[in-house]
Write a protein that binds this DNA or RNA. Structure first.
Length: 469
DNA sequence: TGAAATGTTGGGGCG
DNA sequence: ACGCCCCAACATTTC
């Protein structure tokens, strides 16, 4: 009997385009998929942790339908894996690489420990398109500006996604903890039931989502994706972050659409490469989520957490599109990409509050939270990041709303419980989702604006000017 | 993947 | 016909 291998499942809850499973099928090894609830899972924000749990449940079903299982264990990964190796007779552990500093630290230690034991421990590419060390600049560094990186990788070959391999089961399954005991959604202060209708969970659902996007929406992606009232986005970030679909599949989906002559495909692929850019930055600059990327911003006098920032979190700034976006976030667990920029600009410029306040709120509330993309995005909008907009590039939210939500469809949807383009209204959800003390029902008067947009802009520029000198 | 201020140009109304 | 002013439209600069 061939000894089984352990597949340490993390952000790769899929069977397709899975190098670990493909290889196991080729070599005939039984596979034991195991998910470990460790410190990194525990400190994950409320919404992403809850969503991770939904993904785990769905993935467990997928595996069972193929005669396999998902073994759940809690604890320190190295001891958990050692224990499983001892009880299953496995002689190898495989996982897909992650690139945030905490995961790297953990994985390096696990690999060293397993190798000390004489066990095979292998990490594999799969979460991103290009390994961060394979895209150097001419001078051997890493790209700090998006466009040159895009030009470098634009025509590179990306492995074609492989289909579902056969899955061999071990003779005996190790014991598993019970998912319900984990309570991964316990920290969701808003009812999980509020956000759940907006989720799209699991590998099959993600593939459907991609197919639908490629068939119906990619043609208008380039022109419509900036309009938050128009559902022209792919919404695949939610699945991508948990690996329910691979970035390779998105890449090739886009390339195929391009071959069919559909417009807008490059814009779509470029978005995938933005994610890639973020991962490379975080790999090469592990402090991306905590320290300003550019040293000269180290002493910028951002305000620490404050009442204005709290109003921002609650969608009570008095600025319509900002509040609409913050409510969208709270109720649906996602936010339109352009609005992420708008609320980020508003928090860091008009409210002069630290970008980490925003970073942390997003990390706690987004179901598509991604450690690298979130960190890069916040540094970008705050002005202290790589390839950043200069600090003085301050969005005027009203102008932006006029430009990208001219009919106020988006603002009406989330502020006044209007209807979206399918005639759905989130009114009921609001009552359930938003604490009454937040005074955010449709009947409540809009709050007085925290700052006059013109004054806020002037104030931000003044602080910037002082800090620079 | 800004916004606002400032500068330039050119057409039309009008004395 | 001409110069002047106004001002929209566009371009450039500055923050």
């Amino acid at each position: 009997m061939t000894r089984p291998i352990l597949w340490w499942v993390r952000r790769d809850m899929r069977l397709r385009d899975n190098d670990i499973l493909t290889r196991a099928a080729e070599t005939g090894h039984p596979v034991i998929p195991v998910f470990i609830r460790d410190g990194i899972v525990d400190v994950t924000g409320a919404a992403p942790k809850w969503r991770w749990g939904l993904g785990l449940q769905a993935f467990e079903q997928t595996l069972r339908a193929r005669g396999s299982r998902l073994i759940l264990r809690s604890g320190e990964p190295l001891s958990v894996l050692r224990n499983l190796i001892a009880t299953t007779g496995a002689d190898a552990v495989h996982w897909h690489r992650l690139y945030d500093p905490d995961s790297i630290t953990r994985d390096v230690a696990v690999k060293a420990g397993l190798k000390d034991d004489g066990c095979i421990a292998e990490s594999h590419a799969g979460h991103i398109l290009f390994e961060p060390w394979t895209v150097p600049t001419k001078t051997g560094g890493f790209y700090k500006v998006y466009t040159p990186m895009w030009r470098t990788v634009q025509y590179r070959d990306v492995p074609v996604p492989c289909s579902v391999p056969g899955l061999r089961s071990p003779e005996v399954w190790p014991e598993s903890e019970l998912f319900d005991d984990w309570a991964l959604g316990a920290a969701m202060r808003r009812g999980a039931g509020v956000v759940e209708p907006y989720t799209c969970v699991g590998e099959d659902a993600a593939l459907d989502r991609l197919d639908r996007f490629l068939e119906e929406n990619i043609g208008r992606y380039q022109n419509k994706r900036d309009y938050p009232g128009v559902g022209a986005g792919s919404r695949l970030s939610e699945n991508l972050t948990y690996g329910e679909i691979s970035s390779r599949r998105l890449w090739h989906g886009g390339k195929r659409a391009a071959e069919q002559g559909l417009p807008g495909t490059e814009t779509f692929i470029k978005q995938i490469v933005w994610r890639e850019f973020a991962y490379h930055l975080m790999y090469h600059q592990p402090g991306l989520a905590s320290e300003p990327f550019r040293q000269e911003w180290a002493n910028f006098p951002w305000r620490s957490d404050n009442a204005d920032a709290d109003a921002w979190r609650r969608g009570m700034t008095g600025c319509d599109i900002v509040d609409a976006a913050m409510r969208e976030l709270y109720v649906t667990g996602t936010m339109h990409n352009r609005c992420r920029m708008l609320v980020g600009s508003y928090l860091t410029k008009h409210l002069l509050s630290h970008w980490r306040i925003g970073l942390n709120w997003f990390a706690d509330t987004l179901i598509d939270w991604d450690p690298a993309a979130n960190a890069m995005g916040w540094q970008w909008i705050a002005g202290c990041g790589p390839d950043a907009s200069p600090y003085f590039r301050i969005f005027n939210p009203d102008t932006q709303a006029e430009k990208f939500d001219g009919e106020a469809i988006y603002r009406d949807l989330y502020l006044r419980c209007g209807e979206d383009d399918l005639g759905r209204t989130p009114a009921t959800d609001f009552y359930e989702a938003i604490p009454r003390s937040w005074n955010m029902s449709a009947q409540d008067a809009r709050p007085t604006p925290l700052v006059d947009l013109k004054e806020g802009r002037a104030r931000a520029l003044a602080v910037y000017s002082t800090a620079r000198n």
